[in-house]
Design a protein around this nucleic acid. Structure first.
Lengths: 112, 112
DNA sequence: ACAAGTACTTACTTTTTAGTAAGTTACTTA
DNA sequence: TAAGTAACTTACTAAAAAGTAAGTACTTGT
């Protein structure tokens, strides 16, 4: 009984594309990171850190890792000291541009 | 100093349209509720409850209240017993259709 | 008198997400 | 010799979101 319920929940989570999207691309920081990389093509860790108001290094690094895992962002690190790491969008990441643009437009029109 | 930081955070929250969107329309249940009302035009509380796998009545009522406050959903209640309440989208709510459709398509293409 | 129906609310617990502050690495420059 | 730099990680705390279970209100049908 309980197992059946849990199984159903799991299937829903796996099946509703909007839910999946929100789980993976939603949240407080990911859309902002993606949007910055749409605007800037290549950004370093510190640049992102400075550009995003209020984010901590911990959060930034965590979100970037997530986005890498999702193949939305790619990371390129140079073996120099001090370290140099570049972040940019993958093709998949770039393909989010239209979605985010239309969200932005809707938001500007409808929310304050 | 600390106040300035807080103020900045606040401004960012107020200003980034994608962040605002995610805060208001994001989350686990809101997009699903909206999507169902796009598909069905009018739904009653229990219908939504049954249609959304895993949601509790508490969550449903909470989210519907939020969506009403945001003028995305409108509520029509009939003074009968047992109670009858209908939910449908406002024009603003309906205007989310394209956004959600394109999110769905992107999600189907890119996420599993 | 009691169960059923509908749309909730309340109180409480658990889980998830985010924030804070400090530490780490390994080389460079003053 | 000490400070600076970039990109992190770790340990800990706090806040927000979600889940669970039970209760409420009012009336009709049995």
């Amino acid at each position: 009984m309980a197992e059946k319920l849990i199984e159903k929940k799991y299937q829903q989570a796996k099946e509703c594309p909007i839910t999946i999207f929100m789980e993976q691309i939603g949240g407080k920081w990911k859309p902002v990171i993606i949007w910055l990389l749409i605007l800037n093509e290549v950004m370093r860790f510190n640049e992102l850190d400075k550009a995003i108001n209020g984010i901590s290094q911990k959060m930034l690094s965590q979100q970037l890792k997530d986005l890498e895992r999702l193949k939305i962002v790619k990371r390129k690190s140079y073996p120099v000291i001090p370290p140099k790491v570049e972040y940019r969008l993958t093709e998949k990441g770039k393909s989010l541009k239209e979605n985010l643009t239309s969200i932005m437009e809707w938001s500007n029109k409808n929310l304050k």
